[in-house]
Design a protein around this nucleic acid. Structure first.
Lengths: 195, 195
DNA sequence: TTGACAACAGAACGAACGTTCTTTATATTA
DNA sequence: TAATATAAAGAACGTTCGTTCTGTTGTCAA
């Protein structure tokens, strides 16, 4: 349902949003769109909503959807095997953070040291995105507190007791004596390559 | 100027924003903050503005600043192999996007398909942060265009010719026939664990 | 050449909004 | 115990907002 003309309105809205990180009033959108009537602004926004570029909060405020940020970049044909497909998002900020962090207040970044999880693709120096909570499921990669020390390991169960499995055969499985205290669950991973 | 109490209000606002991607009306913020007076909401927002967590558009709408998205970064010391101790370095805050992206206009995100780089800790489904440029150094992990397809591989040289090395013995080394076209260089990696 | 439709313009209105001012409760300090 | 600051409640008000309804203009097919 995205018309020729609506594409122009969408890009103008995207540009405005990139600058101000919100969708303004209908009056201001008249200027942004270059038109003079609020009712027509509403008609445009309604169409953009149907096309799933924006949506409304329960309060009625307009907010962008995921598709609002998507930038098409020639999808390449993906041969089964090695090559990669390309999906790019906009060059603005706040894309990765929003992707990885659902609950800012409970999320902490921890720099990983050591190679005990290297088979899980977690390297020394990587930054772990950890959501703080006290419970986790079997199979989750957790940050646990063992002997007053923090450890990043996979949570598993053995003979009815929780254990912490490294992802590296050179490291031992940790079988906590008393209680196993969980600091948080790994929800994301970030790595930076030196330049 | 960030009080003990204001920190609580800030985290609540951050969590709300993570959900709805906007800062709502004072009336709704009363619920979010758990208070009953709009005038006190304004006082709180004004203090958060002074602390540079939020700001206003020319229209008077509240929007988040860069600092609004920053997360604490804890450094962890790890004994070779053994558990990790986290010395929560206080006062250090990081925005992931800023950390990974130096040149937004030249940076694109690419979803990795396949396991050809798994020994480099790059898994299927990871998001590669790629800085677009046409030259790279030996040893860089690059996105190259081979046979009209994008490939993520390590750049190397063999008998004076450029080759692309996978990080997985199950995949072959790519020896381009003609010229090797480089799309960009891998500068970062992002992984999200399903919840 | 008319008639249907899309693309706007403009006015009118009630509800919601942000602001300001006054008042109250609680905690701190002297 | 009195003074004072902090944290919040609450009312009052003018402005702005989104909505709706009606009007205008251009286009194109029949």
């Amino acid at each position: 349902m995205t018309d020729h003309k609506d594409n122009e309105y969408l890009t103008r809205l995207q540009d405005y949003y990139a600058d101000w990180k919100n969708i303004p009033s209908y009056a201001r959108l008249c200027e942004v769109f270059g038109i003079a009537s609020k009712s027509w602004v509403k008609a445009i926004l309604t169409r953009l909503e149907e096309a799933d570029f924006i949506e409304r909060t329960p309060d009625g405020a307009w907010i962008p959807t995921r598709q609002f940020f998507a930038r098409p970049l020639a999808e390449s044909t993906v041969q089964a095997g090695m090559p990669v497909s390309v999906t790019a998002t906009q060059g603005e900020y706040f894309v990765i953070d929003e992707m990885l962090i659902d609950t800012p207040s409970k999320t902490t970044l921890i720099t990983v040291k050591g190679d005990s999880m290297i088979d899980a693709g977690i390297h020394d120096g990587d930054v772990a995105v950890v959501e703080k909570r006290m419970t986790a499921n079997i199979g989750d990669i957790v940050v646990a507190i063992v002997d007053d020390d923090f450890t990043l390991k996979t949570l598993d169960k053995e003979n009815g007791k929780f254990i912490l499995r490294p992802a590296n055969p050179a490291f031992p499985v940790i079988r906590p004596q008393g209680t196993l205290e969980i600091f948080g669950v790994l929800t994301g991973l970030v790595r930076k390559y030196r330049r």
